[in-house]
Design a protein around this nucleic acid. Structure first.
Lengths: 222, 222
DNA sequence: TTGCAATATTAAGAATTAATTAAGTTGTAT
DNA sequence: ATACAACTTAATTAATTCTTAATATTGCAA
């Protein structure tokens, strides 16, 4: 799971990053609204945590814009007690949940988990299921015909991305951004290599990864 | 996605072109109102970005004229703070959105994306349907009798053009402009080739592409 | 109905993009 | 410090898509 945290208090973001990482959750940080919007638009995160009060672009603005764009990533709003108005409470801003500052980090982690899970399947233990395969991101385990196989992290992250939204095409850019981070300059060839590895693992299954030439990849029934 | 930017500050247009290209959005530039109007009339863009203050013909004029002609392409207006009057704010000028200069380029990109998508979502989630066929531009899939077939990009772009406005004749010029860009010098013969490919795919359907001699092509029920 | 222009068809090879393989590097755990 | 696994780079091969070009057919006007 990879999440985006948009929050201008640097100390807080650092603490959160540390805590989430401990839970095997990858974190990307944006310290102002503009950057946050840019990242959120990439549509590569499982959950977005948004402070409402932000420099440049407010959290509410960000939700509005990304929802308009059709991005359905669950959003948790962080609000100070005094800015907690109906708009947020009613959640008709487009956000899915909110948390009043100051909050217990445990609480935030729990809610992130809950939302990250909701979108996919109801399974309690962070399990993605698609067609005849399943994937457990927590221990990087791919399940084929009842057999659990541990796969490398990068392979797992890629599989998780694809399997988390079946039917969605992920562009090569999105894949690079999610697997290697934003300002990385890895060769795009790496995508092909990990796709290749995954395809080999899926050979005997009824699930395949299809190439959309010039665009990216999508997971499908064979 | 292909957009038109009409803006007389050359530096700005160059920067925008660079940024949009990075986002895989094709850009055509016009540096004055007259040229902008001419291009906008071609009706081949997904979004038009229009500065209000322009040499020759103002942005507002351009929207008015193209709307009169029945061109429904979404328009984003760029306005300086001091020309931001009700006409623009109310959006009853025919524009769909506006942005006050100076703006964050990221914000512009976000809004262009949002508007460009809107056109598609008028049809059932990114799916064009006509008669007995359907097309998914996102993964370049043509759906015939429940079967999804992947088709090449150029074929897909052409099909998308035709199917997006059934009943409208597209001229060879419009097709060349949209598929190959304005200053391309590909042989017009290429149109016929891709029309040919599409026709082959549609052979067993009740949908056909008709030639309007001396003009262009139109998609129809057989 | 003949000839011309426009359109259609087909095939070949260029160009682009992806897949594969191999070799080298990094990081980590013992 | 060594060994192994994972990751990255690089080079090669394969596949797909695009374009050119050459030829055939069609529809329209004289």
């Amino acid at each position: 799971m990879k999440i985006l945290i948009v929050e201008d208090e640097v100390k807080l973001t650092q603490a959160l990053e540390f805590l989430f990482n401990k839970q095997k959750i990858d974190v990307e940080i944006a310290n102002d609204g503009e950057e946050g919007l840019m990242l959120a638009e990439k549509d590569i995160y499982d959950v977005i945590v948004l402070d409402i009060m932000l420099p440049n672009v407010s959290g509410l603005e960000i939700v509005r814009i990304i929802r308009e764009k059709g991005i359905k990533t669950p959003v948790i709003m962080l609000t100070a007690k005094d800015t907690l108005d109906d708009k947020v409470l009613g959640l008709d801003s487009g956000a899915d949940d909110y948390l009043v500052k100051p909050f217990a980090t445990k609480e935030l982690i729990a809610r992130v988990r809950a939302l990250g899970r909701r979108k996919n399947t109801e399974y309690i233990n962070e399990k993605y299921e698609f067609n005849d395969i399943a994937y457990l991101p927590k221990n990087f385990e791919l399940i084929i015909q009842g057999n659990n196989v541990k796969i490398p992290k990068k392979e797992g992250d890629l599989l998780e991305m694809l399997i988390s939204r079946p039917g969605q095409v992920f562009t090569r850019d999105q894949i690079v951004d999610r697997l290697w981070g934003l300002e990385s300059d890895v060769l795009e060839n790496n995508i092909e290599i990990y796709i290749h590895h995954l395809r080999k693992r899926l050979e005997e299954t009824n699930t395949k990864i299809e190439t959309i030439r010039g665009v990216g990849y999508i997971i499908k029934e064979r």
